[in-house]
């Protein structure tokens, strides 16, 4: 997936769409804590990391493995933004 014209809104929209495939019938807000909602099991977490890597062409590394980076759509967008924008 090209990152040439990627905006923060794109990152959020694509991430929300991906998460939405797993958790139907939930309108996830950008600042909603997906861990607090009880959504996250380890299989989902791994798929989320793989999705972010492939979709935005980045590598999630050791130092990024902090729950706070994946807690909300905003946090994930910040993580991606820090690497590509």
């Amino acid at each position: 997936m090209t990152t040439d014209s990627l905006t923060v809104d794109d990152i959020k929209a694509r991430t929300r769409a991906f998460i939405g495939k797993f958790f139907k019938n939930i309108e996830l807000q950008d600042d909603e804590d997906i861990f607090a909602l009880g959504f996250v099991n380890s299989l989902f977490a791994m798929q989320l990391v793989m999705f972010i890597e492939k979709e935005f062409g980045i590598a999630v590394e050791d130092q990024d493995l902090n729950i706070d980076n994946f807690r909300t759509i905003n946090a994930m967008a910040d993580l991606v933004k820090g690497k590509v924008l």
Binding site: V40, S42, L43, A45, M46, V49, V60, D62, Q63, L65, N66, I67
Partner: peptide, 15 residues
């Protein structure tokens, strides 16, 4: 230690 606290199983163990 690999990764942050609490991500051991979710990302490192699972992958």
């Amino acid at each position: 230690r690999l990764g942050g606290l609490g991500f051991g199983l979710a990302a490192i163990g699972t992958s």
